[in-house]
Amino acid sequence: MALSSHTTSTGFLLPSIHSAPPFFTKQPNPITNSTATEQWIRLISEYARFKRLFYLRIDDCEATGNDWDEILRNERINRRLLPTYLSYIIETMIEKGLAEYEPPKQTRSVILYWRAPEEWAEALHGWVVSTGRLNTIMTFYEITEPEIESPLSGIPLPLLRKCISILAKTNRSQIIAIPDGEGARFFARSTLQ
């Protein structure tokens, strides 16, 4: 059976396996299933990185008209991912540290780590250093919506908090309560403490 990859209207190159109908069914054979799930996780991560998507919800495969349509459905072969399989995939992603339930204590929505939080933390620190904002107090809004677009533009607050707390472990950041919410201050690596 010849399968071919396909480029979507947004320019994302779908893998050839996405046009194989069995890809959309949860395989009962454990070995087959683990391979298939691995490919799904890769596809979700690549697509999220490509479109800068941070959230994935079970609802995304139940209704059309959202950011994930292109990969969770394949109209050309009349197949879609079922919610039961998607929640299994999400569980596997969480086991692998590629996602986390957000908000916690529910299982229908996750925040995706297509970059590890540690990488995000380094990127945040790099950006602070390169824009000369060390030792300045910044609001979260200033970090997520800077005037000049940065690699961190639009990152969700739970992820930002996680980054700051990772940096805090090496004494490179500090969360500060400010009148209209929360803010943070960053220090150079060599800061004494």
Binding site: M1, L3, S5, F12, L13, L14, P15, S16, I17, H18, A20, P21, P22, F23, Q27, T32, T35, A36, Q39, R42, L43, E46, Y47, R49, F50
Partner: peptide
């Protein structure tokens, strides 16, 4: 249920990659 050849064996990623 339809049974297809096992497409997952020896599959190598050929989609988008960063």
């Amino acid at each position: 249920t339809k049974y297809y050849p096992n497409v997952f064996v020896d599959y190598v990623w050929d989609g988008h990659s960063e």
